[in-house]
Simulated assay, not measured.
Amino acid sequence: MFKGSMVAIVTPFKADGSFDEDTYRKLIDFQIESGTDAIIPCGTTGESATLDFAEHDRVIQVCIEQVAKRVPVIAGTGANSTAEAVTLSKNAKAMGADGLLLVCPYYNKPSQEGIYQHYKAIAAAVDLPQVLYNVPGRTGVNMAAETTVRLAEISNIVAIKEASGNLTQVSEILANAGDKIDVLSGDDFLTFPMLACGAKGVISVSANIVPGQVKAMVAAFFAGDHEKARRLHLELLDLHNAMFIDANPVPVKTSLSLMGKCDAKVRLPLWELSSTNLEKLKTVLRKHQLI
């Protein structure tokens, strides 16, 4: 259902820390004009953890308004409280979101059965296509392949964004439920090998700054030009890695700032890049002729 090159878009802030709606709209247009296949507001890259409820809803609303049905909007509405996730998800549906991205409950460290029941409850409460999101490096818990396979039996759970970094786990999901749930890459540096295993696309951080190049790699793969896709994957690898020299989205927001597209402002407890990492980032951006 959701496939291709999709962006986990940043939430731009003004110098005072407030949501910069005008810049956000420009970033969305930049993505669509560059061929991005779907926009995902309020993911980890969108700093959902430090948006209050009103801001969270407003960011999603502005995204839906600006996209204006040109591509799907998959709203990030996950939370570590099932009730909160249901509320955010219902709000997103009412605003016109095309789907939901639901991060695995973080900090609580639920059992696999708890994870299953969490997602089952949201699926029952909100009739929208839902994308699970497994990112154990952020949440503190890995959603096992067996749990994903169980959840694939629920009709409106249509995909999983896999950011475990574990290709064996990805392969197990595809082997056991690939006909029932789509797998999307959640790690830019693993998109190409995941596509080779059967993934349907990527929800990308790097696409914030190089949407055209990420789209070109994915499009080449699905056009059957695997050699071109492999070459583009390797060319972008250092850029993908540079987006994680500090906590996401600090490097990608800094990159956008250096490119003149938005302020680098992030909300505490995130903080600006160290001078050493800033120089490393600039070196990679210059290599790719982005600054």
Rank of each mutant, 00 (worst) to 15 (best):
L195Y: 00
V170G: 11
N91S: 14
M194S: 12
P193F: 09
L167Q: 14
M217N: 01
G212E: 08
A121L: 07
P249C: 12
K253W: 05
T191Q: 03
G43F: 02
F19Q: 00
I154Q: 02
D22W: 02
S274Y: 06
I64T: 13
N80Q: 14
M6F: 00
P129R: 04
N176Q: 15
T23F: 01
M1E: 14
V205Q: 05
E65F: 01
N208A: 02
C104L: 11
G35A: 06
S89Q: 07
L51A: 11
A163D: 07
T139E: 13
I209L: 09
F30M: 00
A163E: 06
V67P: 09
G78K: 03
V284W: 11
G137E: 01
D182T: 05
P41Y: 02
V202W: 03
L237A: 00
A247I: 13
T87Q: 14
P105K: 07
I181P: 14
T87A: 14
I28L: 09
A121K: 12
A229V: 10
G46F: 06
L278V: 01
R138G: 03
E272D: 15
R70T: 12
S111L: 06
D127Q: 13
N277A: 06
Q31P: 03
V205F: 02
S81Q: 04
V126A: 12
I209F: 04
A79S: 15
L195W: 02
T148N: 08
P12F: 03
T254L: 06
L174I: 12
I209E: 07
A92R: 00
N91K: 14
A85C: 11
S275Y: 04
E55H: 05
L268Q: 15
E153T: 08
V7T: 13
C197S: 15
S185G: 06
D52Y: 03
F30V: 01
A8N: 09
P249Y: 11
N208K: 05
G201T: 08
I60V: 15
Y133W: 02
S18Y: 02
F222G: 07
D22M: 07
S274Q: 09
P136N: 01
V250K: 02
P193N: 13
A196H: 09
N208C: 04
A216R: 15
I291A: 15
P129A: 06
P249I: 13
T77Y: 10
L239C: 04
S111Y: 06
L278R: 11
A97D: 08
I115Y: 03
V218L: 10
L285T: 15
I74Y: 05
T23E: 05
F221V: 00
N241V: 09
Y107G: 07
A121T: 13
C197Q: 15
P249V: 12
S89N: 09
F30Y: 11
A175E: 15
Q61C: 09
S5R: 11
F192W: 03
L236C: 02
V183Y: 12
D16T: 10
A229G: 10
T36R: 04
P41F: 04
G198M: 13
